[in-house]
């Protein structure tokens, strides 16, 4: 739809503000894979409560605005095999690379981090190849 880019920009500013709050107030980088991953592999247990508070807020607050949309459809595939493979790759990849779209992308690019910029270029190019092959060559998704 034509107005999608406006809402993208508005939502993007909110995401960036979220990252600004966590950095300026708590001195933390807002990376979803790092905040969650630190709970999973115990590396972040000393700050477990802050991490859990953040994640619960991420899960709960969107519920407040769903009624504005009537129905929200995320169009997630119902092919569980693809979901499992994708989830494994996302978990393994983000923790090996130390970041995902929020940490390397939003927070890293904003501080001109060479690692953040390189990671973002690599995952977007890898994603572009993957969807081109999986969708247009193999017809999987």
């Amino acid at each position: 739809m034509e107005q999608d880019w406006i809402w993208g920009l508005v939502g993007g500013v909110m995401i960036g503000t979220a990252g600004a709050v966590l950095l300026l107030a708590n001195g933390r980088i807002m990376g979803a894979s790092g905040i969650f991953g630190g709970l999973i592999d115990r590396s972040g247990w000393s700050t477990a409560k802050e991490r859990i508070a953040f994640l619960i807020a991420v899960m709960v607050f969107p519920l407040a605005i769903y009624p504005l949309y009537g129905s929200v459809d995320t169009h997630l595939t119902d092919n569980y095999w693809i979901i499992i493979i994708a989830g494994l790759l996302v978990g393994l990849g983000t923790r090996t690379a130390n970041g995902c779209t929020s940490g390397h992308g939003v927070c890293g690019i904003s501080r001109f981090s060479f690692r953040g910029i390189m990671a973002t270029v690599v995952y977007i190019v890898a994603g572009g190849f993957t969807i081109s092959i999986a969708r247009h060559v193999l017809g999987l998704i």
Partner: peptide, 28 residues
């Protein structure tokens, strides 16, 4: 680690269109 990890992440991200943040935001 950065290159191989990001490559794996990009592949998984593309397969379903989900990365860690949105997977929590849309869990409900």
């Amino acid at each position: 680690s950065l290159i191989i990890g990001s490559t794996m992440f990009g592949m998984g991200w593309a397969l379903v269109g989900l990365c860690p943040g949105p997977s929590f935001a849309s869990i409900a």
